[in-house]
Amino acid sequence: MCEHHLVPIYGHVSIGYLPNKQVLGLSKLARVVEMYSRRLQVQERMTRQIAEAITQAINPTGVGVVVEATHMCMSTRGVQKVQSKTITSSMVGMFREDPKTREEFLSLIKQNANKY
């Protein structure tokens, strides 16, 4: 829910991480996303919070989070831009430091974007 307008935000989250010593189960990643998305939220903050939570939990060598969402406050109020989407990202560790790692992650998201 948009914390400014109290209307839904719909979208999907892509997460990539490079394990250090621990690996998370897929359900744990979904739970992290659900935990931060169920509260009144701003997309930019939520994206960062997801990356920080994974980093704190397992100390991976890198984390990448990309959120693509449609905000009902953009499509039903004010400017009424029905087709608008907002994309935010948070890159930590190798995803921030190594352009090849970041590019591989982003290209995988791009390849699968039409499948959602």
Rank of each mutant, 00 (worst) to 15 (best):
L29P: 03
L26Y: 05
N59P: 09
T55I: 01
Q49C: 13
V13E: 01
R77K: 06
Q80P: 03
T86S: 11
K115F: 09
G25W: 02
A57R: 09
G78N: 10
P99T: 10
G64T: 13
V79N: 10
I15R: 04
M94N: 15
Q56P: 01
V23P: 04
Q49I: 06
I54G: 06
I58E: 02
V92S: 06
E44A: 06
I54L: 02
L106A: 09
N112Y: 09
V65A: 08
I87K: 13
L6P: 05
Q111I: 14
E44H: 07
Y116S: 10
V23E: 08
A51H: 03
T76V: 12
V63Q: 01
E104W: 08
I58V: 06
T86E: 03
I109C: 13
N59E: 11
S84R: 07
G25Q: 07
P19K: 05
K21D: 11
V13M: 06
V66W: 01
Q41H: 09
H5L: 06
K81S: 13
V79F: 05
H71T: 10
Q111R: 15
E52W: 00
I50D: 04
A30C: 09
E3N: 12
H5C: 08
K115W: 08
L108T: 14
N114H: 15
Q80K: 13
V13Q: 08
H4V: 12
S89C: 15
S37G: 14
K115A: 10
M35A: 02
T47D: 00
H71S: 07
T61W: 09
R102V: 07
E44I: 05
Y116N: 10
R45H: 14
V65T: 12
S89H: 12
V33A: 13
Y116P: 03
V66R: 01
T55V: 02
K115L: 15
V13A: 04
K21M: 12
Q49T: 14
M91Q: 01
Q111W: 02
Q43I: 13
I109A: 06
N114C: 07
H5M: 08
Q56W: 04
S37H: 12
R48P: 00
T88P: 03
F105P: 07
K85A: 11
C2M: 08
E34T: 04
S75L: 03
R39L: 11
K85F: 09
L18W: 02
H12P: 00
A30K: 15
S27E: 02
T55H: 05
G64D: 02
R31A: 03
V65P: 07
P19G: 06
R38Q: 14
S89T: 15
K81V: 14
F95Y: 12
L108V: 11
S89L: 00
M91G: 05
G64Q: 01
T101Y: 02
S84V: 10
M94L: 15
A69T: 07
C73V: 04
K81C: 09
Y10K: 12
K28I: 02
